[in-house]
Write a protein that binds this DNA or RNA. Structure first.
Lengths: 213, 213, 213, 213
DNA sequence: CATGAATGAGAATTCATTCAT
DNA sequence: AATGAATGAATTCTCATTCAT
């Protein structure tokens, strides 16, 4: 089926169309944030967006495509932000840079943790190129940062260190956001500690024996 | 409605019943692991369990209750394992203990990552007391471990350090398990590094400046 | 199917059996009175009766048979009461007799109006000989009463007059019981008026013209 | 849940919608009349209406809401008819008026007795405002009629006389319709007698003694 | 006989998707 | 293009009935 692809049906060319697409994506975010996957259905999204379901299907061939677009947008924005931030940290020390990133993670993700958690699960199933691309851009950006401070960080880091940094900060922020109602004022410091610790720990400390079963 | 509670409908009294409940829970695990939330419906679970839907509803008043039972069981087993492991690490050094825990995290979660990811999302919405309880027991166990090695770890750790350790190792394992098809042989080492780094980093390194918004 | 008959499967011969049957019928009454047809199912009745469903099916081949037995019992008791009452009214005047019957209707039916209303609907579908029999006995009893007072009541009464009396008093009591929460202290008087009026109205008044469509 | 209300989900705006709603209500009536509560299920109603179940749920959030709509419509129509009839009886004598009403009751209810009996039972459980309203309008209309003929009817009538008239005629017609296969040609006359008798009986006759328990 | 676990057809309800207007 | 009514397969859940213990 042509219909089962995840790509949006058509690029909106007119202003009205763009507004519709924007409304749909915003509505999808709202619904997902407030009701979770349970209440996330196309009729509801269209209703919240103030358009008809028919219009939704004008732009997205199916529900998965809408979800994919939402994820793509979120991830792309995240990647954009991260790239910009890291580019702007050219002269900073490692500690400063990490602190800045931790702070950014908290600010960017805390508010959308619920949305992120909902999308999290979907991400696995949807082969959206933008997601992979965003992920790549993000790890690449972090890798550039690590490269810059090559001499301040531990030797023998896994090639997956950048990915670990991202996963780790994301997880901590999300856990905090979803657990308590009150944000912990020390959250950024905790993330910072985890990142710095991970990056600077002396290699010798890590392997005291075989990781046998 | 009595029916909307999450508590199991009745305790199995005969041997046959216990077998049925066991079969249901096992089947639920299998379905969730292999097909994710998408294929997780009561008819399917009953079918895989080799019983009729009616039997499922004999023990669980609704689908959510089944899910809750599954989560409760998984989390309780996790807590049990962690407590036992930490109790058995009485004489070990911090590095050894952490290595052991990292290893445990990998072994426990890797196989069931898909299941965990699926349940993850449900956990937010279902008020299952066992989850909170298991979480408490797990953080308490880790806190006992940290207390034991009080002099080896950094001063000024957040009271949430134990929870952070758990969140962090869980996230790293899950990310790895869901991302690549091949398990990274260094995964345990990476987790170990993250934990040790987080726990032993010198406090002075963490706060180089204000975490401005 | 032998199984689809409405007759009880077997007469209880032992004391225990009789107790079980009694418990079932009582439970059925309770369930029907409190929850209406909606909550009236065999599992629930058995549970309330404190026996197993299996036992229920030991005595009644199916749900309809249980319902039929309940109706039969209720109607038979009603017929018994009415016959006795009318027999005891041998020397009374018409007005006295009617007043007495109205009073009896109120007392007997008011408490069980909810039950009666629920059973009402079932009665139509179940060919239970006891129902027809009880109805016959009741109309016959009323007819005997009317016969006694032949000279006090109107001439030209329909042969269905007795049935009308019964339907009429039943309906008035039921309507009152189900409508308001408070029983109207004048209910018996109203029923009495309706009965006496119906029975004594001068025939000439009734037919002022053709009952054309 | 929004879903558990009894109010229709949305008003039909297009002509097509109105036709669907009409078809549903008609089908519901037909099913209920022919099969009773037993065969009254949403799939069946939709099928008979010639639409899909989905359409049914487009307009009614649940089965109860459909039932409520049906009751509301029936009762409202009844009230409308009664009001019009009574208004049209301005110049008639009491006997004529009553005869007319008895006749109306027979005509209206006889055909739909089965429907009415089925709905009867549901009415108790569903808080449909239209029922109360219709009942009020009907008793008010009858009261206007009684008022008109104040001097022809008995003094000391209960304030519930109007309600009694309605209950009484309804019950008699229903009993007749559901009992015999053949409609009694004298039914209207019997109802008429009951009503006139009730209304004109001399007060002195009613209370020959105390209505002891 | 009693028990209560198991059955499974059937009923209620949802929601992704289509298509006539 | 937009609309929103209609569709119906898929899903949750119920309950009369059976039968092994």
């Amino acid at each position: 089926m042509t219909t089962s692809a995840l790509v949006p049906r058509k690029k909106p060319r007119q202003a009205r169309s763009e507004a519709t697409v924007e409304a749909l994506l915003t509505a999808a975010t709202r619904v997902l944030s407030s009701d979770g996957l349970k209440g996330f259905n196309t009729n509801r999204v269209a209703e919240v967006a103030g358009v008809s379901v028919g219009s939704l299907y004008q732009y997205y061939p199916n529900k998965a495509a809408l979800t994919a677009a939402l994820i793509a947008r979120t991830q792309t924005a995240l990647a954009d932000g991260l790239e910009a931030r890291i580019a702007g940290l050219a002269g900073a020390s490692l500690a400063e840079a990490i602190a800045d990133l931790a702070c950014m993670a908290v600010n960017q993700q805390y508010g959308e943790a619920r949305l992120a958690a909902a999308l999290d699960h979907e991400e696995r199933h949807l082969p959206v190129p933008e997601i992979a691309e965003a992920r790549l851009r993000m790890t690449a950006a972090v890798e550039r940062l690590l490269e810059r401070h090559r001499d301040e960080i531990a030797t023998g880091l896994s090639p997956r260190a950048a990915a670990d940094c991202l996963a780790l900060s994301r997880a901590m922020v999300e856990a905090d956001a979803l657990a308590g109602s009150e944000p912990d004022p020390d959250l950024a410091a905790r993330v910072c500690r985890a990142l710095l610790g991970y990056l600077t720990l002396d290699a010798a400390a890590v392997t005291p024996g075989p990781y046998a079963r």
